[in-house]
Simulated assay, not measured.
Amino acid sequence: MIYQPYHIYTERTDPTKNMARFYALEISRSLFGEPCLIRRWGRIGASGQSIVHHFENEHDAVVLFLDLARHKKSRGYVPRSA
Results as ranks from 00 to 15, higher is better:
residue 1 M to Y: 10
residue 5 P to D: 01
residue 7 H to G: 02
residue 7 H to E: 05
residue 7 H to S: 08
residue 10 T to R: 02
residue 11 E to L: 12
residue 12 R to W: 10
residue 12 R to N: 12
residue 14 D to E: 04
residue 14 D to Y: 04
residue 16 T to Q: 15
residue 21 R to S: 04
residue 22 F to Y: 06
residue 23 Y to G: 05
residue 23 Y to K: 05
residue 23 Y to S: 06
residue 25 L to P: 00
residue 28 S to K: 14
residue 28 S to I: 08
residue 29 R to H: 07
residue 30 S to G: 15
residue 32 F to K: 08
residue 32 F to Y: 08
residue 34 E to R: 12
residue 37 L to C: 02
residue 38 I to E: 03
residue 38 I to Q: 01
residue 39 R to V: 14
residue 39 R to E: 15
residue 40 R to P: 06
residue 40 R to W: 06
residue 42 G to W: 00
residue 44 I to W: 04
residue 44 I to K: 01
residue 46 A to L: 12
residue 47 S to H: 09
residue 49 Q to M: 10
residue 51 I to G: 11
residue 51 I to N: 12
residue 52 V to T: 14
residue 53 H to P: 05
residue 54 H to D: 12
residue 56 E to R: 14
residue 56 E to F: 12
residue 57 N to T: 04
residue 57 N to A: 05
residue 58 E to R: 02
residue 59 H to D: 11
residue 59 H to R: 15
residue 61 A to G: 09
residue 62 V to R: 04
residue 62 V to A: 03
residue 64 L to R: 12
residue 66 L to D: 07
residue 66 L to Q: 08
residue 67 D to E: 14
residue 67 D to C: 07
residue 69 A to M: 05
residue 69 A to E: 00
residue 69 A to H: 01
residue 71 H to C: 09
residue 71 H to V: 06
residue 71 H to P: 04
residue 72 K to A: 05
residue 73 K to A: 07
residue 76 G to K: 11
residue 77 Y to W: 00
residue 79 P to I: 09
residue 82 A to V: 11
